[in-house]
Design a protein around this nucleic acid. Structure first.
Length: 509
RNA sequence: GGGUCGUUAGCUCAGUCCGGUAGAGCAGCGGACUUUUAAUCCGUUGGUCGCGGGUCCGAUUCCCGCACGACCCA
């Protein structure tokens, strides 16, 4: 048995003493009528004389966050989901028994108080706790992080998010904002008559994007499955099914690296609208973003990591080619010469294979020279067909796709295109992807006969878009890392992942 | 995968360059205090210095490896 810490031992002693007095450490019969916010919003503005006339009694519950003890009286702070409020405990008012309970409480305990409101000399709204108006609802055995500096160790913050949420109010605020943003998006879509749907997370073939999947296995069916990398192919089957306008806000899983902008599971909204084009979606995207920031900030502008971002439409529109020339500083004529383009890519440190199609090399150059410079919202258009296996071909330029990506603060935020609904062309695109897969590209799209079968039934002309929800939340909460907007980001297990990896060999390689 | 930095008390951090087994604040514990709010005042407990090796009379400190994390790069 491992030696118990001094602090834990002291708490256990207190527990024994409370139990000896017949006090239930985890009762379940407390009724809570109010919140810290409901009380402070109503009475905060009142002067002491007005408060004296209030005879109403309030009941609050929450976590004991601070104690300022004066011997026969004490101020305490109670924190609930809405904020915190101060309460005043007086020995002669609480009664001997309840006051002795208070003396054995610890910061971190969940408590219940009842009493009337008043204002202290310093003007702070306070609950004057009544006789027997204090109860212990749940005993805390572990000390909380320090009250002033809070919890700053990011590893503990992510691994023990509960502690982070208890002591860091700005963290709670980020996740409230996240919920608000998603709710605004959902309402925006519903108002435009989009139907919210849910499509499979476990898919026989992970399609709809260019990425490596996580693989798993269904025992009863004896079937290999992948966690989805995108819902795209299923959503478009719904379009074929006549739903015409659908959206899904849900998790995607990509078996790739982790960075400040990448978590292996992340949240995307994808939506599809029949009888629309990618150009319609640019307008709609502008409207969506402006709607969100106006609701949040009452302005089309916001700051991210010191930069002011202005979402006032219309946003800049730029073809991939123009972007690489104007922003990347690449000579225009070079882009028509596959050999020179590959040389440039290699000079930029990009690994180029002989078999790589020119469009793929162009996009690698774009990623290297342009992406991080697109700070203000920018639609990049005219993507090469080579890297757009599910997009409609441009009517004039047959090697280009009717597609855009949205960049803000140097990061890809959305990807959209007019959908390829010609099953013959689609089969050809899949075959091209298969050749890339044979050349060693593990991210290349697989052949999906079921999807082609659906296209053969006739899919209406449609445009679709995917928007990275985590990244929007990062931008709008000024968060530097995606881990700050995901409650439980993926981290390595503490005891080292090596033996676990050995026991569960993965078949992705 | 590579580079840089980090890991010391429950938490926030010193100390390590220049080797002699550790300090502060908060929390905790004891005492005083019934309008404080990082309450105050007096006293005080608490540490396998991330883990494993090596060098050395002696390692938290120097060297090597590993784990975990952060940032950057691929």
């Amino acid at each position: 048995m491992e030696e118990e810490s001094e602090l834990l031992k002291k708490r256990r002693e207190k527990i024994d003493s409370l139990k000896a007095d017949g006090i239930d450490l985890y009762p379940n019969d407390a009724r809570v009528g109010d919140t810290t916010a409901s009380v402070s919003e109503r009475f905060g503005p009142m002067v002491p004389e007005e408060l004296e006339k209030i005879t109403e009694r309030f009941t609050l519950a929450g976590r004991l966050m601070a104690v300022r003890d004066f011997g026969k009286g004490a101020f305490i702070s109670i924190q609930d989901r809405k904020g915190s409020l101060q309460a005043f405990l007086r020995k002669n008012q609480l009664g001997e028994k309840t006051f002795s309970l208070f003396k054995r409480l610890d910061i971190g305990d969940i408590i219940w108080v009842a009493g009337r409101v008043f204002k202290t000399r310093t003007g702070e709204l306070t609950i004057d706790v009544e006789e027997n108006g204090l109860r212990l609802l749940s005993k805390s055995l572990r000390p909380l992080p320090e009250k002033w500096h809070g919890l700053t160790d990011v590893e503990i913050r992510y691994r023990q998010r509960h502690l982070d949420l208890i002591v860091n109010p700005e963290v709670r605020k980020v996740f409230h904002q996240r919920s608000r943003i998603i709710s605004l998006i959902r309402r925006f879509m519903e108002e435009r008559d989009f139907l919210e749907v849910e499509t499979p997370m476990m898919q026989p073939r992970a399609g709809g994007a260019v990425a490596r999947p996580f693989k798993t296995f269904h025992n009863t069916l004896g079937m290999n499955l992948s966690l989805r990398i995108a819902p795209e192919l299923y959503l478009k089957r719904l379009i074929t099914g006549g739903m015409e306008r659908v959206f899904e806000i849900n998790r995607n899983f990509r078996n790739e690296g982790i960075s400040t902008f990448h978590n292996p599971e992340f949240t995307m909204m994808e939506f599809y609208q029949a009888y629309a084009t990618y150009e319609d979606l640019m307008t709609m995207t502008e409207e969506l973003f402006v709607h969100i920031v106006r609701e949040l900030f009452d302005s089309p502008k916001f700051r991210y990591q010191g930069k002011e971002i202005d979402l006032t439409p219309p946003w800049r529109r730029l073809t991939v080619r123009d972007a690489v020339v104007e922003i990347g500083g690449v000579e225009n004529a070079l882009l028509d010469d596959a050999g020179r383009m590959a040389d440039l890519a290699r000079k930029l440190g990009i690994t180029v294979k002989q078999s790589d199609p020119p469009g793929k090399v162009l996009m690698a150059i774009f990623d290297e020279t342009v992406e991080q410079n697109l700070i203000q919202p920018t639609f990049v258009t005219h993507y090469p067909i080579d890297v757009s296996p599910l997009s409609r071909r441009n009517a004039q330029e047959r090697t280009l796709a009717d597609r855009f990506e949205l960049y803000i603060c140097g990061k890809e935020i959305a990807n959209a295109f007019s959908e390829l609904n010609d099953p013959v062309d689609q089969r050809g695109r899949f075959e091209m992807q298969l050749r890339e897969r044979e050349d060693g590209d593990l991210e290349a799209h697989e052949m999906d006969e079921d999807y082609i079968g659906a296209l053969e039934c006739g899919m209406p002309p449609t445009a679709g878009e995917g928007i990275g929800i985590d990244r929007i939340v990062m931008l709008l909460t000024d968060s530097a890392s995606i881990r700050d907007v995901i409650l439980f980001p993926l981290l390595r297990t503490r005891d080292g992942g090596e033996h676990l990896a050995a026991r569960c060999p993965h078949d992705n390689d």
